[in-house]
């Protein structure tokens, strides 16, 4: 699974057309256009439905779906933020949002720090066993995190950090790091070696070379993998469910999954809650699209 690590083209980025090459646009048949239109429609309508429903009052929701905004325009005047207010305050989603951040930020920073040092050692340092140790990292890439739940939960209970944020961070360190090492090492080995050699000749220590030279040059790769790791943790349900569970430290995913599980009362809040949880990922997506695409495609192999 080497290809995802270097996707050469981002969403919509197009290479310059070859000179004399036939115009590829020439043959866009009706079949293609219609198929694409249908797919785009199917992809986007569920999300628009959720967005519109989240602003409809409880009573309006009971009278029919979001399309009634078009069939019964009077209901547009009754659109409201109440669902958001009630979900964020009444269902503690504000707290859950902070929990999500408190989990995701260190769970992104710490594995990247560890991985950057290791990737530097693997790329620019000579030591016995280097290749074998790196193969270990590649093997670890796709091991599913399921292998660790039962034993690690037991360890956490024994040393008394069960149900805390550090417990979750450490787990994400263990499972986020191999991918980060792999991607960063691939990137670092494409850096011009002469620059690094000359820094050494000028008397820079390994640490200075790493900190002042290699790290700044690796920013594109670090940004991509940081975005991937952040979103992976932000969107994670299972790890948070196992190590934190529902309760005062639950992140958004866990809180909302509990809301989805309850039928009846407060169903109108689920739509608002769902959209609330998507705000951060969608912002990241829109603002950092280039890094985002590279990060997600590189990270898809993660176990």
């Amino acid at each position: 699974m080497s290809a995802p690590v270097h996707p050469p083209v981002g969403v919509g980025k197009r290479e310059a057309k070859m000179k004399g090459g036939e115009d590829r646009h020439a043959k866009t048949g009706w079949f293609s256009r219609i198929t694409l239109a249908i797919l785009v429609f199917l992809w986007v309508v569920p999300v628009i439905g959720l967005l519109l429903t989240s602003f409809r009052s409880r009573d309006d929701q009971a009278e029919g779906g979001w399309w009634r905004l078009f069939t019964d325009p009077a209901s547009i005047t009754r659109l409201t933020f109440d669902n958001y207010v009630n979900a964020i305050q009444g269902r503690n989603l504000g707290d859950a949002f902070i929990n999500s951040l408190a989990i995701a930020l260190p769970a992104t920073f710490i594995p990247l720090l560890i991985a950057a040092f290791a990737a530097y050692a693997f790329t620019f340092m000579e030591f016995p066993g280097r290749d074998v140790l790196f193969i270990v990292v590649v093997t670890m890439l796709i091991i599913p995190n399921f292998v660790a739940f039962v034993p690690v939960l037991k360890i956490y209970r024994d040393i008394g950090i069960g149900g805390t944020f550090p417990a979750v961070w450490l787990f994400h360190v263990g499972f986020g790091m191999s991918l980060a090492i792999y991607v960063l090492r691939n990137f670092m080995s494409s850096l011009p070696r002469t620059v690094i050699e000359s820094a050494k000749i000028d008397g820079a220590s390994q640490f200075q070379t790493f900190w002042r030279l290699v790290l700044p040059m690796s920013v594109p790769a670090i940004a991509s993998i940081a975005i991937f790791q952040f979103l992976w943790v932000w969107n994670d349900l299972l790890v948070a469910l196992v190590f934190l569970g529902p309760g005062e430290r639950a992140p958004l995913t866990v809180s909302i999954s509990q809301m989805l599980g309850q039928q009846g009362q407060g169903q109108e809040l689920v739509t608002a809650a769902g959209f609330f949880s998507m705000i951060v990922p969608i912002m990241v997506f829109l603002l950092l699209q280039r890094f985002f695409v590279r990060g997600l495609t590189a990270g898809a192999v993660k176990g």
Partner: peptide, 24 residues
């Protein structure tokens, strides 16, 4: 670009979020 952005967007959303979308 527009088509690809729309098809790619759900990649950003959690599957719990997808649950709220498709639950509806």
């Amino acid at each position: 670009r527009a088509v690809k952005t729309i098809i790619f967007m759900p990649m950003a959303i959690s599957l719990v979020g997808a649950g709220t979308v498709w639950g509806l």
